[in-house]
Design a protein around this nucleic acid. Structure first.
Lengths: 305, 305
DNA sequence: TCAATCGGATTAGAAATTATTATCCGATAT
DNA sequence: ATATCGGATAATAATTTCTAATCCGATTGA
């Protein structure tokens, strides 16, 4: 191909100057000084070795060469402008692609997503549930929702929910024949375990029992599940008592599918975060979704419904 | 109008990188380093707030956004390239516009111009005879031929001919009844005067007579003409003796229309120069014409014909 | 007719952009 | 395993671009 393009900034300056037949007006259009335009045009003329303007004292004219050059440049620059607008438009209207940790997707986001569609019918959200960390440089993804410590360099990070941990079970189990009124009663119940595959170390049953001051309960007893949603489902099915993260069971507690029989509620050192590339963080659809997420999380804390 | 163009250099870098799907190859195409392309693309992405590439370890992909952007940019840049080539072509093939001092045009250039047309039939020469100095910034003119001292800042200047001054008359006058064998014979002949309007001060009759050691001749006697070509024409018509510039009478002497009756031949402090804007001096048609002019001037000194 | 104004050119220096070097990093490839 | 490939990054260098200040010549207009 080997194009032989002239320097592009001077080209742009010439185009503006030729359109206005005035360096001063071109300078205004491009937000620079008249001297800058004068330099640029000269640079272009020198680079092309062709005179483009005829300079009179209070008047500019295009040379024959400049005359033929101008309209073609105008068209080309307009095309770049149009392409760029189109790019922005396509990008603003295209799918909003979110990558969400599977448990959050299942237990928190998806149940709420209908409301977002109602609020912003113009934004199509495409959720990809995955427990692999998003790499915005690699994946064609706009935002991520992740558990973690909130340290993601180069990304815009907003904390959605700080997690706590406490026991939950089905209301049926609570009212069942075997008492479940205080932590020590757990020795007569099945403990449901969740294996957090990731590097997150939230309190497990051993830690919770220790914090609750309960002894004589085998912390490792009972089935393990690979995902929070599975252990919670087991709990809803009255198969035992699960240790739940507050961020995931909000709706289940609200709906009465699960109850917290007793405390304590333990803090964790991680939270749920919305992340997106810092550069793109303020694009309309991304901002809209982030704002909505934070709003939802705030409602979790003080349920108005 | 108010275009919102992204920075153009990064844009160009992106286009090349996207075309090759390789920063390294784009760098080669643009004669910069891979790091430069990496920076440029990042700058563009940041400026648009839109990710354009997906970066894998040994592979690049375009995002959806980049995919839609690329072809439009390619087209726009191709258009600029095409416009620029066209500009050069038009400019190389268009008229070669020369501004020439009237006397040089009449007595030197025009008689020789047919030969140039023969040598370079592809170049159309348009001669504008004028005694106003060319201002390349103001006039749409490619070259000038001027008398002067050769000090033209910012211009490419080549000396065509150093001028000398001597008397000329028609052969008929020389063989006429009134003798014209030595300077002192001039007292019996009409002196033809030329008024150099410009700042050039070449020897006039007074200076020449003094240099010739002739006394008793009224240096101011005889008719004056506004142009060299007129006084020379009068001389050819045997109306008297003119003081001729060597640069103008070459062909007339060769053809025998004029003869130099005697010396001395006086030097002058000016010469005839070809000038053109330094920037454009090497464009094909300009170079061709300048070379041809210098060739013609050299032939004047050592006539081969 | 003289001063004010207008618009571009010019110069020198400041600011910003752009490019480079050197090095890192994580996959392939040998 | 080691080399290589291709992009990222940090620090710095080089270049481009811009500005402020001023000049200049023609209008304008009082």
């Amino acid at each position: 191909m080997t194009r032989q393009l002239p320097p592009l900034k001077p080209l742009r300056a010439f185009e503006a100057a030729a359109r206005h037949l005035s360096f001063t007006k071109a300078a205004q259009e491009l937000n620079v000084t008249q001297a800058a335009i004068s330099h640029q045009v000269k640079t272009l003329e020198d680079s092309l070795q062709i005179q483009l303007f005829r300079r009179f004292n209070r008047r500019l004219m295009l040379t024959d060469a400049g005359q033929t050059y101008l309209p073609q440049l105008t068209e080309a620059l307009d095309q770049i402008d149009a392409a760029t607008r189109r790019l922005r438009a396509v990008d603003d209207s295209g799918d909003l692609k979110i990558s969400v940790a599977t448990s959050i997707a299942a237990k928190w986001l998806l149940p709420r997503l209908v409301r977002f569609r109602q609020k912003h019918p113009e934004i199509d959200v495409s959720v990809s549930a995955s427990d692999k960390l998003v790499d915005f440089g690699r994946d064609d993804v706009d935002m991520g929702i992740r558990y973690g410590r909130g340290t993601y360099p180069g990304l815009r990070v907003d904390k959605l929910m700080q997690d706590t941990v406490f026991p939950v079970c089905s209301p049926a189990l609570l009212q069942g024949p075997v008492p479940l009124d205080q932590p020590s009663d757990l020795k007569h119940h099945t403990l449901l375990h969740e294996e957090w595959g990731e590097q997150i170390n939230a309190p497990d049953w051993r830690a919770w029992l220790a914090a609750a001051g309960v002894t004589g309960v085998n912390a490792t007893r009972g089935p393990g599940y690979s995902h929070s949603s599975l252990s919670l489902q087991a709990a809803m099915d009255s198969q035992g008592v699960a240790l739940a993260r507050s961020s995931l069971v909000g709706l289940d507690l609200e709906a009465g599918r699960l109850v917290q029989p007793f405390g304590p509620t333990l803090p964790t050192n991680y939270a749920c975060y919305v992340v997106s590339p810092a550069a793109a963080a303020d694009r309309p659809k991304i901002k809209a979704f982030r704002d909505w997420l934070l709003e939802q999380a705030a409602e979790d804390l003080s349920p108005t419904v």
